[in-house]
Amino acid sequence: MLTRIVTGLALIVLSGLYWLQADAIPQSPMSGSVGADGLPKLLALVLCGLSLIFVVQSILVRQPLAAPGIPEDDQDEDDAAFTRRGHVLAGALLAISIVYSVILPYAGYTVAMGFLLLAVGVFYHRRMSAGIATFAILGAVVFHLIFITLLGVRMPEGIWPNVLAFLHAHTA
């Protein structure tokens, strides 16, 4: 119940912050009678109202109804994932994704992809292995072939063209 009340209160705060941001939207003579802040302010009010109802509901329904035929509120199979341990592991995967995004412009698409495949592979496999390393290398090459060669997507090249140019200039 406490989580629900805290969630409801957080949503009320969010609606307040959103209203303040909407209020700061500059007015334009082309905006018409409603203005660019019209719908956002309406949404802030609706969210505030719904969140209040949510909080009141949470207080009134103090415990899950256990009458026959009435399922407990919102229990689902994902519950096992939302433990403290689950949050830590989810954060670890998110951290791998952030590292990939950070190194992408410097390492280039293929190398960064190799890192991503390796890191996620090791994360799930729980240890480094020759199979995971081979998979990461081959996988990076396959992704390069699909997205850069076949689809022609302009992926970041990283520092490699500069490095090659530097080496070329100094060896020539």
Binding site: I96, S97, Y100, S101, L104, Y109, M113, L116, L117, L118, V120, G121, V122, F123, Y124, H125, I132, F135, A136, G139, F143, I146, F147, L151, V153, M155
Partner: peptide, 20 residues
Amino acid sequence: RPRAYLRAGIFGLIFSGIYS
């Protein structure tokens, strides 16, 4: 296929697709 490879491949697809 083994979870480690599959999940890593899905990560690769998502981030490649999003960038593209």
